[in-house]
Design a binder for these strands. Structure first.
Lengths: 142, 142
DNA sequence: CGCAGCTTGACAATGGTTTTCGTTTTCTAC
DNA sequence: GTAGAAAACGAAAACCATTGTCAAGCTGCG
């Protein structure tokens, strides 16, 4: 199924009209390789010459999340958004660089239905603390 | 090593004094089986007849997180806190009931250093959607 | 056309968290 | 013990992401 048809199917399936503003928000999200905040979305749309209100951006991403086209993350205490595929999956999110990987394998650790895994990706882990103590528990990196 | 000595060792190791207020905050956290918010911590301390300011609670949990005694989570958009063990580990957090499991095994999915895994625990998963469609991608449960 | 209902956006309100700043407590040196 | 310095404390204000309000605009349908 072509992407654009899938969008409309998923939107209407969730009772959400594919309005101009919502599609514009979705287009920005599709172009972004990693999760961005509502304010960044808003700024990017204004950059593109598309007048839109911040309130509308918040409502659009909310609709898109409800429709299953977009996934919401929490990074540094604020919500970020990114498009995600239609099949069941979970995400690996690097707390340091913001990289997101979609994983289709089902880990089911201890019976958990895993939705999001936060951690530090291999390149960021190598970059940080290359020679310092490594066995400290959960010291947040600056 | 007795718990109380470990606290002091970890606190002083992070350059944090084991003051009366911080110890009281830590005691409440130790008694709580799952993560609680700063406001809940504050209310519980007032309940116990310990006068403390909300600002101090925020600063105390921040110090305790820095010292590695407490781990911070994000649930429903606000920060929650819970004591955690001294050894390297990660957490499984149920988005539905707030249950937290400490895991010491290293999953290292795709080279990630896993810190926190958000999902739905088995009892909550059984309770929700027992017969409805199960293969929807990431539809947030109400 | 004309209505009903969804959508939009400026503005206000909310609420968790942090900053400010003056006061109090704690630690260290004597 | 006492003094002085540094850290901790707390009330109030500031901050800021997010949500609510409400009037105006748009869309589809009879």
């Amino acid at each position: 199924m072509p992407e654009i048809l899938r969008w409309h199917a998923q939107l209407s399936g969730a009772g959400v009209r594919a309005t101009r503003k919502r599609v514009q928000v979705l287009e920005v999200l599709i172009a972004e390789p990693r999760p961005i905040t509502a304010r960044q979305l808003h700024a990017e749309l204004l950059n593109r010459g598309e007048p839109i209100g911040l309130t509308t951006v918040y409502r659009a991403v909310s609709s898109l999340v409800d429709a299953g086209l977009v996934h919401a993350f929490t990074q540094a205490g604020e919500a970020t958004y990114r498009v995600c595929g239609p099949t069941r999956h979970h995400h690996l999110i690097c707390r340091s660089c913001g990289l997101v990987l979609e994983q289709t394998a089902e880990p089911r650790t201890d019976g958990f239905e895993v939705e999001a895994v936060y951690g530090v990706c291999a390149p960021c882990a190598r970059r940080a603390l290359p020679e310092q103590q490594r066995d400290q528990p959960h010291r947040p990196r600056p």
